[in-house]
Design a protein around this nucleic acid. Structure first.
Lengths: 139, 139
DNA sequence: TTGAATTCCTACCGAACTCATAGTAAAATA
DNA sequence: TATTTTACTATGAGTTCGGTAGGAATTCAA
C-alpha cells in the first residue's frame, strides 16, 4: 500500500518545474541534480508526463521541459494517476466488471469509501497549494 | 498503491469468523473453502492474527479459530495494519526520523493529508459496520 | 557545418516482494 | 492410538520496482 517512486518523483518533478518556472525550457539534468534523482530514471517518468501533455519539451541545445499550464491548474491526483497507472486501493475498483463477485462482496464498501477519501484529497490539492503550504511552513 | 492479498484475505477471514460465530471453534479449512482461498496461505495470515490476540485458537480435533471479541470491537484499520505491516502511503510516515528532509519536503503535507483520510475511513469502520452495510445492500 | 546539448526510444537487469506450496512437528480429542 | 487440527519453517515461481545502458534523432551555437 505504498505510492511508488514513479508517483513520488513525478510529483517532485512537477513541483520543481513549477518553482523554477520562467518560460524557458529547463534541462532534465538540472532537475535531476536539484532533486538528487537519477536523470536516466527521471527521463522515463517525464516522458510519460510529456506524452500526456502535462509538460512541453524542446530537443537540442537550450532545450528541456516546462509546464504546459499554471501550477494551480494541476492536481496531485492527475499527476499521481498518470505516473502510477492507478491509485485505487484494490484492482476491482479500476475497471467495472473486473470482478464478478461485487454483489456478494463484504469488503467492496470499505474499498469504495477508502478510494473516495483518497481522491478527495489528491483531486483537491494543486501544485500551487503544495507550494503555498510549504512556504507557510518554512516561515 | 494496492492493498495486498494479505490485508484483503485477513479482512475476509475476520468477516467470515464474524458471520459464522457460534462460540465454537471453526477449522481453517472451512473458512478457506467458503472464501475460496488456499488454506495453507490463509494459515500464515491467521497465524499473525492469532499471535496478536485477534483470534483465539484451539488445536486438535474440534479445534480451529474464533473471534476474541465482538465484531463491533474490531476496526478494519487494526486488521489491515496488522496484516499489511503498514497502510501508510509513503514509508517516511511510518516512523518519525526515517527521512531527514521532512523540513524541506514539498510533498510531505500531501502524504499526511492522504494518510489522515485513509485512517479516518478504516479506523471508523468495524466488522459489524461492514456486515450491516452488506446486509442493507442485499435487501 | 560541425560539435555539443538535449530529448526520445527501447532493451536489459538485479533485488525485493507477492502469493503462494510443501513438509513436518506438536497438540488435542474421540 | 488414529485422526484432526494448529504451529512452524523452508522453498520457489512470477512479477514488480528501481533503476542502468546505449544509441538515434533533433536542435542550437559557434
Amino acid at each position: 500500500m505504498k505510492i511508488s517512486t514513479k508517483g513520488r518523483y513525478a510529483l517532485r518533478l512537477m513541483l520543481d518545474l513549477a518553482l523554477n518556472y520562467s518560460g524557458k525550457y529547463i534541462p532534465l539534468k538540472a532537475i535531476a541534480q536539484r532533486q538528487e534523482i537519477s536523470d536516466k530514471y527521471l527521463e522515463q517518468i517525464i516522458n510519460t508526463l510529456s506524452k500526456a501533455g502535462f509538460v512541453e519539451s524542446a530537443r537540442g541545445a537550450q532545450g528541456g521541459y516546462r509546464l504546459a499550464r499554471r501550477p494551480s491548474q494541476y492536481t496531485a491526483g492527475e499527476i499521481l494517476r498518470l505516473a502510477e497507472g492507478s491509485i485505487a486501493p484494490v484492482a476491482c475498483l479500476d475497471c467495472a466488471g473486473s470482478c464478478d463477485k461485487t454483489d456478494t462482496c463484504l469488503t467492496i464498501g470499505l474499498w469504495r469509501k477508502m478510494q473516495e477519501a483518497i481522491n478527495d484529497v489528491v483531486d483537491n490539492t494543486t501544485l500551487e497549494d503544495m507550494i503555498k503550504e510549504y512556504r507557510g511552513r518554512q516561515r
